[in-house]
Amino acid sequence: MGTILVGIGLSACGITGSPVPTASPVPDSSTATGIRQTDDAGRRLPFDTEFPDRWSSNNDGTSYEPCTQVSEEVIRRFGLNVESVSDVAGSNFQTARGCQWSYLNNELSFMSQFVGNLDQPQGGLSAHKEDYSSTTWHPDIEIKGRRVSIGSTAPSDCAAYVQSGKSVVITNVVLIEQNPPTLDAVCASAADFLRATIDEIPE
């Protein structure tokens, strides 16, 4: 894989582009161009993707699709703006596949959840942590019987990682505030969002 975006570095990865969010599912407007707009179960993305290879060999290790499987109830519960949804992918054939939501009370801060294939799926999260040794790794936790790794690269960024098939699902929080919370609080927020969505994430 080699190009997976580490969740905690998402805000600095130079992602460009701004898919247009839709308030509710609409008919597939890109059928004529052949660009896929639905997940494996036929659920419509909350925006129109312009990328023919949004789903690719870089992120096909799990069927989980955050953009369609994270419920609006969960998004609202965490103080996020449902209408702010955007694709984390800024280019075609990108490793990261998922969505990002801004906070209602702070548009500069956001929560994202996305999928990317593991370089060494047989090594699981341990191998992933070795691959990204520049990340500050905190003690692993357990959520509903599953191992979850917690990592950060800055006081305002933290992410929770869980394996799903041959992929890793990354839940990332970036809080940019005048009086920022502690890093422990940022990490707890990432873990809580993962906890709220983990039932949808296949092992």
Rank of each mutant, 00 (worst) to 15 (best):
residue 43 R to F: 09
residue 69 Q to H: 12
residue 102 S to N: 14
residue 98 G to N: 07
residue 63 S to K: 09
residue 89 A to D: 01
residue 103 Y to E: 07
residue 38 T to H: 09
residue 123 G to I: 07
residue 150 I to A: 07
residue 108 L to I: 01
residue 50 E to G: 15
residue 35 I to F: 05
residue 101 W to C: 00
residue 149 S to V: 11
residue 43 R to E: 14
residue 86 S to A: 14
residue 141 I to V: 15
residue 117 N to H: 13
residue 53 D to Q: 14
residue 129 K to Q: 14
residue 81 N to P: 01
residue 56 S to I: 11
residue 44 R to M: 13
residue 77 R to W: 01
residue 61 G to I: 13
residue 35 I to M: 04
residue 137 W to Y: 05
residue 54 R to L: 15
residue 91 S to M: 13
residue 110 F to G: 00
residue 42 G to T: 13
residue 105 N to K: 03
residue 146 R to S: 11
residue 89 A to G: 15
residue 36 R to P: 02
residue 49 T to R: 07
residue 148 V to E: 06
residue 150 I to W: 04
residue 121 P to T: 15
residue 105 N to C: 00
residue 142 E to P: 03
residue 53 D to R: 15
residue 98 G to V: 07
residue 60 D to M: 08
residue 46 P to A: 07
residue 61 G to Q: 12
residue 135 T to K: 02
residue 47 F to Y: 14
residue 44 R to K: 11
residue 35 I to E: 05
residue 82 V to N: 00
residue 80 L to G: 02
residue 112 S to L: 03
residue 108 L to T: 09
residue 86 S to M: 05
residue 79 G to P: 04
residue 91 S to G: 11
residue 88 V to Y: 00
residue 47 F to N: 07
residue 109 S to C: 07
residue 123 G to F: 06
residue 91 S to N: 11
residue 111 M to S: 04
residue 94 Q to W: 05
residue 99 C to W: 02
residue 112 S to M: 05
residue 104 L to N: 08
residue 131 D to H: 10
residue 125 L to E: 04
residue 91 S to I: 08
residue 34 G to D: 01
residue 102 S to R: 14
residue 47 F to L: 12
residue 101 W to L: 02
residue 75 I to N: 00
residue 75 I to Q: 02
residue 135 T to L: 11
residue 59 N to C: 10
residue 54 R to Q: 09
residue 106 N to D: 14
residue 100 Q to H: 00
residue 112 S to E: 03
residue 82 V to R: 01
residue 108 L to W: 04
residue 71 S to E: 05
residue 140 D to M: 06
residue 37 Q to I: 11
residue 106 N to I: 03
residue 81 N to T: 09
residue 39 D to R: 07
residue 46 P to N: 06
residue 39 D to K: 03
residue 60 D to P: 05
residue 51 F to Y: 15
residue 36 R to D: 14
residue 140 D to G: 12
residue 106 N to K: 03
residue 70 V to Q: 00
residue 43 R to L: 14
residue 36 R to G: 12
residue 128 H to D: 10
residue 132 Y to S: 07
residue 91 S to R: 12
residue 129 K to L: 05
residue 114 F to A: 07
residue 108 L to Q: 14
residue 94 Q to K: 08
residue 56 S to R: 06
residue 69 Q to A: 09
residue 40 D to F: 08
residue 107 E to R: 12
residue 96 A to H: 13
residue 39 D to W: 04
residue 80 L to R: 00
residue 112 S to N: 07
